[in-house]
Amino acid sequence: MNLYDTLFWFFSAVAVGCALGVILSRNPVNSVLFLVGTFLAISGHYFIMNAQFLAIVNIVVYTGAIMVLFLFVIMLMNLNADVEPQKGQLIQVAGVISGGVLFLVLIAAIHKASPMPIDKQSIDIGLINNLGKVLFKEYVLPFEISSVLFLSAMIGAVVIGKKEPALPAEGEAQ
């Protein structure tokens, strides 16, 4: 068992464990932290697959920005385990069963797929200059469009989150 495989199993265990933590923990803040853990584990996977750029971008975007926003919102609303709405036992069991059935169906469908070895290290396609060349040559239009998407999402978020003028101002730092 070499380092690569060890790291794979380690990150996989962390990812799955943290993912379970996300859905099982009662406190939303804990969920967020577990999700951060999952994302870090996934970034670790990217690292060992030598996709360094994506790994760092994953950290910066997901854990550094998106999850902070989640945490932000949860803190603003002061959500904790006490106010967490809970579903009935039956619904939860049904959710687990249907999710599990979906998993089993998909596994059963692909379990015969011929395993191909992941060429872990020898290829530098995940490095930033290779990625950048393709991104700015072949995907320049999607890139530009996604920037427009970003802009519109930003404006949309501002418009949605804008206070109605009738309401008194609330302290929100967003």
């Binding site: 859905i23 687990v96 249907s98 999710g99 599990g100 979906l102 998909l106």
Partner: peptide, 10 residues
């Protein structure tokens, strides 16, 4: 699948 379960359970 864990994600789906979570979406269903919570």
């Amino acid at each position: 699948s864990i994600g789906i379960m979570g979406a269903l359970m919570r």
